[in-house]
Design a protein around this nucleic acid. Structure first.
Length: 469
RNA sequence: GGUGCCGUGGCCGAGUGGCGAGGCGCAGGACUGCAAAUCCUGUCACACCGGUUCGAUUCCGGUCGGCACCUCCA
């Protein structure tokens, strides 16, 4: 398996630290405001990577942090007249609900910055002892960038090129403009924890160094995040961790591309965003997931409603194939098909290519069913691939339609059953009787009535089928 | 200014030194009471200019265009 490692900027053969096991850390969101389409992309990209690695037989430990203390959260809280804790809790809940809707698996560990202050303080003390950090008179602690010779290796920068952009903000007390905060002294009214340098809060970068090590140890396998985090966030993580404990901090750095809007990056700071929860409300969640997966995770992708509708139509093609076969297939997928799928995935998780295999499976499966042949093997392949891509959904429940279904049944003099699906069956049987009698007006009337409450009826060669939506 | 990525058919989007990935859309056909779903066929693309090569969309150089990072950001 080859993965594109940002460290080195090339495709490299993936060899985990320990055979058969993969340790993975992904930078999750700073919970300052509601999730947008870009957050979903990152989460889906690494969710699929995790799922694929497990499907390939690896034992995966997957860690995603939640940054719940940070300047932006404090600012948002002040603006809304809430406590930072409240803002963080509310926003975390929004992220969780969006991620659940997108069928993103819960990480094995989801550490919060505020619950790991002790680890961060320990790491900062170690950096100070080693001469890599210093406490300033104002109560801040800074990392001494020039003390770490490898600084810039991950992001491909030279220290001298960075100088023009670096600056010292008012109130900071750095030796060098390149230095960055490990610990920030608390101002009145700000969240604070006791520390050897006085009350304060951690800088942004230190949490990932501390938590990744705590849960995955030194030299873990995969560190992920958006390309916008490469510099300075990930560069600083490397500096902190390797200055304290020696290299390597992480072995493979994977970065997903950005979601653009009208050709430019979607970002909170510019207001160019499309709200994720809103989109999930308006489109089938799996259409959004498919939209992400159609493009290789490293490339930028432009968000448009047309693209989402396109993905929705593709999703419908997938689902309508699966509806032709109920239950679980009892035989395995053809190995050659899974091999083709695997070949794409092993090439730096090329989900766009992998989807081409899925659609070929659907076409072949449909053709076989049309020809009256057995397609179980193709259904099995479909289920495997859909599962790895996280596109498979649980059977639609009809519970929310029960009232409408029962009411329709009542108006037709059909007895409602305990299971709403059984009630639908009875109505469909009624229509089939009308069709047998060639009473097309009655038949169409019943079909329209079902369509009206969200049940689609299709007359296939093998009999009448129906499904929701 | 520095660093890096990218320009593929109506739209989206993989990939390859020589054989039309795939999806959406559109057109025609088959099936069908109608509709839907499905199948078949068509829609033969690789920004531009040079170079290497028997042959380049694919490699090299240049031009033009787009984007990202260099500040918080998935």
């Amino acid at each position: 398996m080859r993965v594109f490692n940002s460290l080195g900027r090339e495709l490299q053969e993936f060899v985990p630290r320990q055979a058969g096991q993969v340790s993975m850390y992904v930078c999750g969101p700073t919970v300052q405001s509601s999730p947008h389409i870009g957050h979903g992309r990152s989460a889906v990209a690494f969710d699929v990577i995790g799922r694929y690695l497990e499907w390939s037989g690896y034992d995966v430990t997957y860690v995603v942090n939640i940054t719940d203390v940070e300047d932006k959260i404090i600012a948002a809280a002040a603006e809304r007249g809430l406590t930072p804790e409240r803002v963080a809790a509310e926003t975390s809940a929004q992220f969780r609900s969006a991620y659940d809707a997108l069928n993103i698996r819960r990480p094995d560990i989801e550490p919060r910055a505020t619950e790991h202050i002790a680890e961060m303080i320990g790491l900062i003390e170690k950096l100070i002892a080693g001469g890599h950090a210093y406490a300033a008179d104002n109560g801040d602690v800074y990392f001494r960038v020039r003390s770490f010779a490898d600084y810039g290796r991950l992001s491909g920068r030279k220290i001298d090129d960075l100088i023009s952009g670096a600056r010292i903000e008012p109130g900071e007390d750095k030796e060098d403009p390149l230095d960055f905060a490990l610990w920030k002294a608390a101002k009145p009214g700000e969240p604070r924890w006791e520390s050897p340098w006085g009350p304060g809060r951690p800088g942004w970068h230190i949490e990932c160094s501390a938590m990744a090590r705590r849960y995955l140890g030194d030299g873990f396998d995969i560190h992920g995040g958006g390309t916008d985090l490469v510099f300075p966030h990930h560069e600083n993580e490397v500096a902190q961790s390797e200055a304290a404990h020696g290299p390597p901090f992480a072995r493979y750095w994977l970065h997903n591309g950005m979601v653009n809007l009208g050709g430019q990056k979607m970002a909170k700071s510019t207001g160019r965003i499309v709200d994720l929860l809103g989109a999930l409300d308006e489109y089938p969640p799996m259409a959004i997931r498919l939209f992400y997966l159609r493009t290789h995770y490293r490339r930028p992708v432009d968000f448009t409603t047309e693209a989402l509708e396109d993905a929705g139509a593709s999703l419908e093609r997938l689902r309508s194939f699966r509806r032709r076969f109920s239950g679980e297939p009892e035989i395995d997928a053809a190995p050659e098909v899974l091999d083709r799928f695997r070949a794409f995935m092993e090439d730096d998780f090329d989900t766009a290519g992998a989807l081409s295999v899925l659609f070929e499976v659907v076409r072949e499966g449909n053709a076989r069913l049309d020809a009256g042949q057995d397609a179980e093997e193709w259904v099995a392949a479909y289920d495997d691939i859909m599962g790895v891509l996280g596109l498979a959904e649980p059977e639609d429940s009809l519970d929310d339609l029960r009232a409408a279904i029962d009411s329709l049944a009542g108006s037709l003099d059909v007895a409602a059953a305990e299971d709403p699906a059984a009630t639908v069956e009875r109505i469909v049987e009624l229509r089939d009787r009308a069709r047998t009698e060639e009473d097309w007006a009655r038949s169409d009337e019943l079909r329209d009535a079902l369509t009206h409450i969200g049940i689609i009826v299709e007359d296939a060669a093998g009999g009448t089928r129906w499904h929701r939506q």
